[in-house]
Simulated assay, not measured.
Amino acid sequence: MIKPQLVEGLAEQFSQFLSGEAKVLDQESVRAQVKSMLQGTFDRLDIVSREEFDAQKAVLLRTREKVEALEKQLQTLDEQLQKAP
């Protein structure tokens, strides 16, 4: 989920960019519409935050380590079974 501060900041920058034209319009209305548009766009993009990405990366790393350990254990057991009479 995108942080609301990012959306707010982008909306503010966009409204400043349009400040010359926004004098004719209600600047708060423009800001609210831009904020809504940006939030909707980010929601559709299915973007995750850096914190979420790093957390999932750590989970994946731990899972990979466990799988590798289990593969070694399976190989050892398989070798023992092959040596047994």
Rank of each mutant, 00 (worst) to 15 (best):
L77Y: 06
T41I: 10
L74G: 09
A55V: 06
A32T: 13
K23P: 00
S29C: 04
G9T: 12
S19Q: 05
A22H: 01
R31Q: 05
V7R: 00
G40M: 03
Q27S: 10
E71I: 11
V48G: 07
K72G: 08
T41K: 12
V30T: 01
I47R: 00
D43N: 13
T76A: 08
Q33W: 04
E12T: 15
I2K: 01
K3E: 08
K3D: 10
Q16F: 04
D78S: 10
L18G: 08
E21K: 15
M37S: 15
V34A: 14
L70C: 09
P4N: 14
Q27L: 06
E51G: 05
G9Y: 07
K57C: 05
D43Q: 14
E68N: 15
F14S: 10
K66H: 14
L18H: 04
R62Y: 04
S29Q: 13
F42I: 00
A69E: 12
L38G: 01
L6A: 09
I47C: 01
S36Y: 04
T63E: 13
E68Y: 11
E51T: 11
F17E: 09
Q56G: 08
R50I: 07
G20I: 06
Q33H: 12
F17L: 13
V67I: 14
E65I: 13
E8D: 13
D54Y: 03
E65G: 08
E12M: 15
D26W: 03
Q5R: 15
Q73C: 01
A32G: 08
L74F: 08
Q13P: 03
F53R: 04
E79V: 07
A11M: 00
L60D: 09
V30E: 00
A69N: 12
Q56D: 10
L60F: 08
D78C: 05
K66Y: 06
L38Q: 02
E12P: 05
L18N: 07
K66E: 13
K83V: 06
K23M: 02
A84V: 12
Q80V: 08
E79I: 07
K83Y: 02
E68V: 15
Q80N: 09
L25V: 09
T76G: 03
K57G: 03
L38H: 01
E12H: 15
M37D: 12
M37Y: 13
